[in-house]
Computed example of a mutant assay.
Amino acid sequence: MTASSTALTLRDPWALVPSLGNLDAYISAVNRLPMLTPEEESTYARRLREHGDLDAAGRLVMSHLRLVVSISRQYLGYGLPQGDLIQEGNVGLMKAVKRFDPDQGVRLVSYAMHWIKAEIHEYILKNWRMVKLATTKAQRKLFFNLRSMKQAFKGDASAADSHRASLSAAEIERVAEELNVKPAEVVEMETRMAGGDVALEPSGSDDGEEAFAPIAYLADDRDEPTRVIESRRRDHLAGDGLLQALEVLDARSRRIVEERWLKVNDDASGGMTLHELAAEYGVSAERIRQIEVAAMKKMRKAMEAVAA
């Protein structure tokens, strides 16, 4: 680093870090920032603790940004953007700087490591899946160790067993013993990590007739208020409403409607036909049909009045 850039950094600790741009430029910039000597670190930490000096806090943070970048590389296997991991790690670094006590005899790099990892862990747990996989201490321990231990077991396995994805009973006991958790918790976490997210809604590209997402069968709308009201109204119309609509008809029209639409015999043959009714009343089948159509119109108006 040149003398001019060093002087610029001393005046403004954020000057060398690009505000926008690609990740490589950021990493290159933070790796050029000067490290603090133990004396400088102690001085800045005391200025922050005793006087709330934000410039001192900035210098402590800036000198350890490369630590966050280094730690973030350890978590690239989870498939999350390194830029996001660095961002969360920087939050942990700032928390560490705020709580750092130089009189404890520990360098900030050692103290901050815990805070940086804690923030990155929390980010991974929240974003690796839509549903958070680990909430208890034992689950978190398993989440961040189970995959690496499974890889170790796979490396130790024979060629015949190398295709095996799940843990054997002996391996489950070994993981539980090493991590001081219950075997049942190992099995549960392995099952959680082996599963994947399932979209409730169908994807935009899958718009064919066969598209059938879980939302179609998971939703239970039987107690949805509007459906309850509709169901009650439909039951009322099918019962009392229908009886009131039949009351507006004369005897002949009512009997025609009942025989044609409302009567079901034991043999499932239904009511009388147009010709049978025509023979009974001494008119043509077409006349019976006309009476039926007129009766249905009257009933429809009556039922609309009931529904209103």
Rank of each mutant, 00 (worst) to 15 (best):
V109R: 08
V109P: 00
V109L: 00
S110M: 01
Y111R: 00
Y111W: 02
A112M: 02
M113W: 01
M113E: 10
W115S: 15
W115A: 15
I116S: 02
K117G: 00
A118V: 04
A118E: 14
E119S: 13
I120E: 04
H121P: 00
H121G: 00
H121E: 06
H121W: 07
Y123P: 01
Y123S: 02
I124H: 05
K126T: 04
K126N: 08
K126S: 08
N127D: 01
N127I: 01
W128M: 02
M130E: 10
V131P: 00
V131G: 00
K132T: 14
L133H: 02
A134C: 08
T135L: 06
T135W: 06
T135D: 09
T135H: 11
T136M: 03
T136R: 04
Q139F: 02
Q139D: 03
Q139R: 02
R140L: 01
R140K: 14
R140Q: 15
R140C: 05
L142N: 08
F143Q: 02
F143V: 04
F144E: 04
L146D: 04
L146N: 04
L146S: 05
L146R: 05
R147L: 07
R147K: 09
R147H: 07
S148V: 11
S148Q: 13
M149C: 01
M149A: 08
Q151C: 00
Q151N: 05
A152S: 15
G155Y: 03
G155Q: 14
D156G: 08
A157H: 03
S158C: 04
S158V: 03
S158E: 09
S158A: 09
S158I: 01
A159S: 11
A160F: 03
A160H: 02
D161V: 01
H163Q: 09
H163V: 11
R164W: 01
A165V: 13
S166E: 14
A169N: 10
A169S: 14
E171V: 03
E171I: 02
I172G: 04
V175N: 03
A176D: 10
E177D: 14
E178N: 11
L179R: 07
V181R: 07
K182P: 00
K182C: 01
P183Y: 10
V186H: 09
V186W: 06
V186K: 09
M189H: 06
M189K: 07
T191S: 12
R192K: 15
R192E: 15
A194D: 12
G196Y: 11
G196E: 15
G196T: 15
D197I: 12
D197W: 08
D197Y: 10
D197E: 14
V198T: 13
A199W: 12
P202T: 05
P202D: 05
P202F: 03
S203Q: 12
S203Y: 11
S203N: 11
G204W: 03
G204L: 08
S205R: 12
D206H: 13
D207A: 12
E209N: 09
E210V: 07
A211F: 09
A211L: 09
F212T: 03
F212V: 05
A213W: 10
P214V: 11
A216K: 13
Y217S: 10
Y217L: 13
Y217T: 13
L218I: 09
D220N: 15
D220A: 03
D220I: 06
D221K: 04
R222W: 11
R222V: 09
D223T: 12
E224H: 12
P225T: 04
R227K: 14
V228G: 04
E230A: 13
E230S: 07
R234P: 00
R234E: 15
L237Y: 05
L237N: 04
